[in-house]
Amino acid sequence: MTLHLAKLTLNLQSSEARRDLADPYDMHRTLNRAFAGSDGLSPFLWRLEDCRPGDLPVILVQSKDAPNWQQLPERWSVDQAQRVWEPEKVILPGQWVRFRVLVNPTISTVPKGVEVQGSARGYRKRLGLIKAEDQLSWFQRQGQRLGLHRVSATVVRSGKVRSSKKKGHPMTVVITLLEGQALVADVAALARGIGTGIGHARMLGLGLISVAPL
Rank of each mutant, 00 (worst) to 15 (best):
A132S: 12
E16G: 00
A189S: 15
A182D: 13
K64I: 03
T109L: 11
T154Y: 01
L208S: 01
L10T: 05
S152N: 14
V155F: 00
K166R: 14
R98I: 00
P111Q: 10
V90T: 08
P87V: 04
V151K: 05
Q71H: 12
G54T: 05
A17G: 13
L177Y: 03
Q135A: 01
D186I: 01
Q181H: 14
I194M: 14
V161M: 09
V58G: 13
Q13H: 15
E16Y: 06
Q135C: 01
A185M: 13
S163Q: 09
D134E: 09
G180T: 03
K125Q: 15
T172H: 07
S63P: 07
Q117W: 10
T196L: 14
T172Y: 11
F99C: 07
K7M: 12
D186L: 07
G199R: 05
G54I: 01
Q144G: 08
R141W: 00
R47S: 10
K165I: 03
G199F: 07
T196S: 14
R157S: 14
P87C: 12
D26V: 10
D23Q: 08
M203R: 09
V90P: 03
V211S: 10
Q135P: 04
P24G: 00
L127A: 00
Q95G: 09
P67A: 08
A188S: 02
V110C: 02
V155T: 01
A17P: 08
R18V: 01
S63Q: 07
W46C: 05
L92F: 14
T172S: 04
G147N: 08
L178Q: 04
R124H: 12
V78A: 10
S119G: 03
Q135T: 01
T30I: 00
L190V: 04
E88K: 15
D79K: 15
K165G: 09
M171G: 06
I209H: 05
R29N: 14
R83I: 09
D79P: 12
L48I: 02
R52F: 14
V90L: 11
L177Q: 07
Y123A: 12
V151D: 10
C51V: 09
F139T: 02
V173M: 02
V103Y: 08
R18C: 01
G54K: 02
I209W: 01
P67H: 12
L45P: 06
K165V: 07
W76T: 06
L48N: 11
T30N: 05
E179G: 10
G159K: 02
V151A: 10
I59E: 12
A120H: 08
D186S: 10
A189I: 07
V90S: 07
Q144K: 12
R98Q: 08
R202F: 11
N32I: 00
Q80F: 01
G207S: 06
W96Q: 12
G199W: 05
I209E: 07
G54L: 03
D65L: 05
S163F: 11
G40I: 00
L48S: 14
A191W: 15
E16N: 02
L136A: 00
A22D: 06
L21H: 11
S108D: 11
Q117M: 15
V187G: 08
Y25N: 13
L136C: 01
V110W: 15
R47L: 04
V187I: 09
L148Q: 08
S38N: 02
L60D: 13
A66F: 06
A36N: 07
C51M: 04
T9E: 14
R157K: 14
L127Q: 12
G40N: 06
V211C: 08
G180I: 02
K165Y: 06
E86L: 03
L56H: 12
A22R: 05
